[in-house]
Nucleic acid binder design. Structure first.
Lengths: 351, 351
DNA sequence: CGTTGGCACCAAATCGATTTGCTAGGCTAC
DNA sequence: GTAGCCTAGCAAATCGATTTGGTGCCAACG
């Protein structure tokens, strides 16, 4: 932009956006005074909402440059009631899935000039609700809600028209868009793959009891399709964590008739299962085949590399951002939409 | 709080914080009208900055309840010029280290009522600066800047007194606090460990050329202490990624006299190195010992489990938050501080 | 009885922008 | 010559809180 008129880093030049020497920020009124026009006019050259004479515009722009004026977004937000900020509430930004999702969202809205505000709910429904209220009070223009527990449905279409898009819940919110992955199909794929390899006693380690059941569903469907009868003994709970996966697998191994394959509801759980199987001296995939779900980075790091279902975290975030933008910009005002992203099986070594 | 007066979820009760039936948000003025007092008084019962009569306070609180009033934080921020929001700019929230750091920061400031705004700079100095300006315009009360490149020092003490704390740079900012880990000591530890195991040709895969050199320093110090001469051939660049680590390791392996140990500047690089060593048919740690840096979750997932240096990401974030709060609340206004967090070696299987 | 002083409250200014309605000229068209 | 219409600009209201400087009122005190 100013490429030709300034060397890369003239160390002594005033930092752009630096405060006026006085220490307090320059206001639009001061710009107006220096340019010899009214605040109205300055505002108009900034927004382009009304025409401004050639010469006047020049003066104003010069004044802006000279004073290093930067508009105060808070004042602007107060007047326009739009903050160009979205909030995302996730269980934990530390989790690979949610951090990638958040990045997708941030990238999507950033391009439209929106910033991203992050809340960690730790999966607590109460905190989720508190956060929604909090960010509403803060005036965000949109919310992305990634809730693990169904209970979060407690709150309706949010504040005075602030759009929300939900991630992954099966819940059908009256006025909120929803983006989710096709968990059922993904699970079906993974389970069918295990069956195709010749497994006959296929276990599943699901999430915690509070979690949704779309993944269970696919598992059952695939079982039925392969003519394998569902055995409740082979369906156990994990808690999405490696340790939980390990514990669950140990339980399965101590069954009178242990499984010859296990479908894990996420990759971390699968890694825990791998730990347990290894510790029992069995081999993967020959004695027991295992598949995960998510295709997180770790899936390729563990050994054997995990056969898993690719869960498009980034695209989920991006899509959520797109839907949100859509509504925030008023481009879409109709009924609630649901977009479901496809899952694909990625075969590696563990099954 | 209202525990005794309401059942857990009276499904038909008005959602707290829901808009007035009208659709638009309730303002303080409306509360005042309903309570038969002036806005001033309502404000005072809210803030407790001046005394309000017992009866009046009761009326006001009743009105607040009845209307479901929630203060508009934007208006409040405009008046008080405090937003109770901090921004953190990181290279990529997707990286294990930065997501954990962000969580630590978020936890620390959340307790004081602050929210967290996240910016992904992808390590681009230009974007870092843009973000700082942007969040300053948005009126955040503090900034945490996690920059990989030293260049970021370009910008001074930020806006009109908005405190910044830097993460990990060696740079000494005139007015900004700094928190970093003792990279030099950590590297020294890791390298010394390799030497103690009997390695004599110890290579290092560092970060990209733009990165800081504290880790290199520790490596050299440890070498000297063990009486091993520094061999420039054994010092190569990675790019913090697994693929980069693998490439760098391949280069080392094709040396006329390959190393018998390698210290990698982060865990991902180490994992890449492991890949390359494995592919060459060599064994770890017997043929080549490897250590990483960070102790990310993946360090225990890869096989062999990584001997690495624990880099306290969470504490770094928390500390940064504490320093920031300190200044935002005006509890500390003195000169810039630097806190350096210790690193410890964690021995596993790879060395 | 007059004064001091504290209590409880209110009116109005303020934060920094945006936006609506209006006006003064200059121009064309009939 | 005048009605009509742009154009370019300004004054003032507005968004929703906080905060300063008063103002009645009543009790206590000299």
């Amino acid at each position: 932009m100013t490429q030709s008129e300034a060397p890369p880093l003239p160390a002594n030049a005033p930092v752009p956006g630096a405060p006026a020497p006085g220490g307090t920020r320059v206001t639009l009124a001061e710009v107006a005074r220096l340019a010899g026009v009214s605040p109205t006019t300055v505002s108009h050259v900034l927004s382009g909402k009304r025409m401004v004479g050639e010469a006047t515009r020049g003066n104003v722009q010069a004044a802006i440059q000279k004073l290093g004026y930067r508009p105060n977004n808070i004042a602007r937000s107060l007047r326009t009631s739009r903050s160009r900020m979205v909030a995302v509430v996730v269980p934990d930004i530390t989790s690979p899935f949610y951090s990638v999702l958040t990045r997708g969202l941030a990238d999507a809205v950033y391009e439209a000039g929106y910033g991203t505000y992050v809340c960690n709910s730790d999966g607590l429904a109460e905190r989720e609700n508190t956060f929604v209220e909090d960010v509403l009070d803060r005036g965000v223009d949109g919310i992305v809600m990634a809730s693990t527990n169904l209970a979060s449905g407690g709150m309706g279409p949010s504040g005075p028209g602030t759009p929300i898009v939900y991630i992954g819940g099966a819940f059908d919110h009256p006025q909120a868009d929803l983006v989710r992955t096709d968990d059922e199909e993904g699970s079906r794929l993974a389970t069918a793959h295990l069956a195709a390899r010749g497994a006959t006693r296929i276990a599943m380690i699901q999430g915690p009891p509070e979690a949704g059941s779309a993944r269970d569903e696919g598992y059952r469907v695939a079982l039925a399709a392969s003519g394998i009868e569902f055995d409740p003994e082979l369906m156990v709970h994990g808690d999405w964590s490696r340790a939980g996966g390990s514990r669950a697998m140990q339980a399965l191994l101590s069954l009178p008739q242990p499984p010859d394959a296990v479908f894990c509801a996420n990759d971390l759980t699968a890694i825990g299962a791998v730990d347990a199987i290894r510790k029992a001296g069995l081999s993967i995939p020959d004695d027991i085949a295992v598949t995960g779900f998510d295709d997180a980075d770790v899936a390729t790091i563990v050994s054997p590399a995990l056969t898993t279902v690719r869960n498009p975290a980034y695209d989920t975030g991006r899509t959520a951002g797109a839907l949100l933008l859509n509504r925030m910009l008023g481009e879409y005002t109709e009924d609630n939409r649901t977009v479901v992203l496809p899952c694909t099986l990625v075969e590696r070594e563990s099954a």
